[in-house]
Computed example of a mutant assay.
Amino acid sequence: MATPGAQEIPAFLTTLPRKRSLYAVDTYFRESFEDLVAVGGGRIEEFCHDHALLLLKPDAVVSRRLGPALRWVLAYGFSIVWAATVTIDRHGVRALWQYGLNAASRDRRDAADLYVTACECLLLLLALPGRPQPASLVLSAAKGPADPVRCRPGQLRHDVGSFNYQLNLVHAADEPADLLRELAVLCNHETRATLYRRTLDASAGADRRSEAFALVDRLEAATPAVDLELDRTLEELADAARTRMQGRPDAPARELLSAIARIRDRCSRDWRAVVRLADSSGTPVSRWQRIVLATHLLDPYVPGATSLLPDTSTAP
Rank of each mutant, 00 (worst) to 15 (best):
R65L: 10
A193L: 09
S281W: 02
A184N: 11
N102D: 14
D231E: 15
V61E: 06
E235Y: 02
G304L: 10
V292C: 06
A222S: 07
K19H: 03
S313P: 01
D250R: 08
S63Q: 12
E46D: 15
A112E: 01
S258K: 03
V149T: 11
L180P: 03
Q246G: 00
E8N: 10
R269V: 12
N164Y: 06
R150L: 15
F163I: 03
M1N: 02
T283R: 00
V37G: 01
P249V: 09
G92F: 04
R150P: 12
A240M: 01
L128V: 14
T312N: 11
A127T: 09
L234E: 00
C119T: 10
F78W: 11
R90I: 03
A273P: 00
V292S: 06
T306W: 12
Y76S: 15
H171W: 01
A135R: 02
A177S: 15
F213I: 04
A112H: 02
H91L: 10
R242K: 06
T283P: 04
A95Y: 04
A127I: 07
Q98L: 11
L298C: 06
E255R: 09
R269D: 13
E235N: 01
H158A: 15
L215N: 07
L228N: 00
E120W: 00
F78V: 03
E45V: 02
T87F: 04
W97T: 10
Q289K: 02
A6C: 06
D207P: 10
R108I: 04
S210N: 15
P153F: 13
I260T: 04
L114W: 00
H189D: 14
E31W: 05
A206I: 10
L167R: 08
L234A: 01
D311H: 08
L230P: 05
H91Y: 04
R272N: 07
T117W: 02
H158C: 14
A103P: 13
S286E: 07
R262D: 14
S32V: 07
Y99A: 01
V25G: 13
G304Y: 13
E229T: 13
A259R: 11
H296N: 11
D147H: 08
